Simulated assay, not measured.
Amino acid sequence: MEEITDKPEVKTVIETPIFNASASDDLCGILLKDSVLHLAKLTGAVAVFTFGNIDTKSFKDLTIPIIDITQIKTIIEKLTYLQHEDQFQIQEVSESIRTEADKNASLLMSAAAVEYSLGTIECGIVIGLIRTQNSYSLVVHSMEENETVQTVRECEKRVSPETFRSVLHLSLNIAMKGREGKKVGTAFVIGDEEEVLERSHQMIINPFRGQDPGSEISINKKENWETVMGFAQLDGVFIISETGKILSAGRYLDVDTRDIHIEKGLGTRHLSSASITRDTNAIAVAISESGGTIRVYMDGKEVIFVEPNTSLVEVEGRQLANNPLN
C-alpha cells in the first residue's frame, strides 16, 4: 500500500448523506467506520465526532479524541418516506437531503467550535459520523474556516488562550448550574487590567485583595472555581488579568454607555460589559441571570453568543447551529 506523506488541503465543509439506514445498518456502519478511519489518517484530523447509536470500538486505534455529541438533540429532521415516485416527490426528497446535509454540517461545526473554545481539541480538521433515523452522514470540516474558532482566536490575541477558555468554561458552569439551585448572573472583564481598574471602583470590600504574589488566586485553576461561583452572586463584575489572576470581585464599571447598542431586554451588566470593551482592550464575558445566556464582547460589540440550554452558537449575529436538548 502506498504510504501517504502529504495531507490534502481541506478548505470547506464536505458533507454527504451516504446510505439509507434502513438498507443494512451493519453494512452501512462497517463501511462508514472504515471511511472515518481512513479519512482521519489521510487528513491528519484532530478529532472525530459521533452522533446517534454508533459503536466507537472500531475507532480504538485512533490516538485523537473521539467525542460523542448524542446528548445534544439534533434538529436534523427525519426524511420523508415516499409512497409514490413522481417528479414532485423526488424533488421533495432532494430538498430534504440538502436540508439535512446543511444541518448535519452545522451540528458538527457548532460542536467542534465549542470543544475548541473549551480547549478539548486543537484547531484542525475534524471528522463527523452522524446517524439519524433514516440515514448516515459523513462530514469533514476544516476548523480554520469556522467563524466561532476565528472569533475565539481574535479574543486570544488580547488575553492568554488558557485564561479565555477557563472563563468560558466557568461561565458555562454558572449558566447551567447556577449556585445552590438558584440562577446566577455575573460578568468577567479580562485583560488590560490596569486600564479597567482605572475605570472602575469597588462596590464592596474586594475579597481578593492582598493576595500573596506567590500564592495568587488564578481562574485557570479549577480548584478556585467554587470560590468564584460563590462570589458570582455579588453585584458587580470580576476583573481578571490577561494571565488569569483574579484581581477583584464586586467591581462597578465607571463607563459611558452612550452609543452602545445591545439586544433589547438586556440590563446594565451587559451594557457596562460592552462599554468597557469599547474603551479598553479588554474582553468581557457576561452571563444573563434570567436566561442563562453567555455573551462575549470585544470592541464594544457582541462577538459570540452561547445559549447553553439549546447549544445555540452565534458569531456577530449569525446563527451557526441550534441543537435543542429537549
Rank of each mutant, 00 (worst) to 15 (best):
P308H: 13
R258C: 11
G178C: 04
V36D: 02
G44M: 10
S137C: 15
S200W: 01
G230W: 00
E316I: 11
G292L: 11
T280L: 02
E314D: 03
T120V: 14
E100R: 12
L170Y: 14
N326C: 13
T151C: 14
R258A: 06
L31R: 07
Q133H: 13
K221Y: 11
K7F: 06
L62E: 05
M176Y: 04
K222S: 00
T268W: 10
T257R: 08
L37D: 01
D55H: 15
R153K: 14
D254T: 05
P213R: 06
Y116E: 09
E307H: 15
F19Q: 09
S142C: 11
T151G: 05
G265N: 05
V196H: 05
D61Q: 15
A105S: 04
A105E: 00
K103W: 13
N224F: 11
F51E: 11
K41A: 10
D256K: 14
S171L: 07
S160K: 10
K73I: 10
L247R: 00
I239E: 01
I14P: 06
K7N: 01
V13N: 09
M109K: 07
F164W: 08
F88H: 02
N53Q: 15
G265E: 00
Q133G: 10
S22P: 11
A40P: 06
E162P: 05
V149E: 13
S272A: 12
P65H: 03
D254R: 04
F208H: 07
D86Q: 09
S142T: 07
D26G: 02
E122A: 14
I190D: 05
V10D: 02
A232C: 01
A113R: 05
G214M: 14
P17Q: 07
E314V: 00
E314I: 02
N323Q: 15
P213W: 02
S135I: 01
S273Q: 00
A111V: 14
L27D: 10
I130F: 15
I72P: 03
S106T: 01
T120H: 06
V313A: 04
A232G: 03
S218D: 06
V255C: 12
P324H: 04
K301L: 07
F59Q: 02
L108I: 15
T277V: 03
L62C: 11
F19L: 06
P65C: 12
A45R: 11
I67H: 08
A101C: 12
I287W: 01
N173C: 13
K245N: 03
I30Q: 12
K157F: 05
L312I: 10
K33G: 14
I121N: 09
L27N: 07
F305H: 02
A47N: 03
V315K: 00
I283H: 04
A321R: 01
H261P: 00
H38M: 13
E194M: 04
I246S: 00
E9G: 07
G185T: 09
S58D: 15
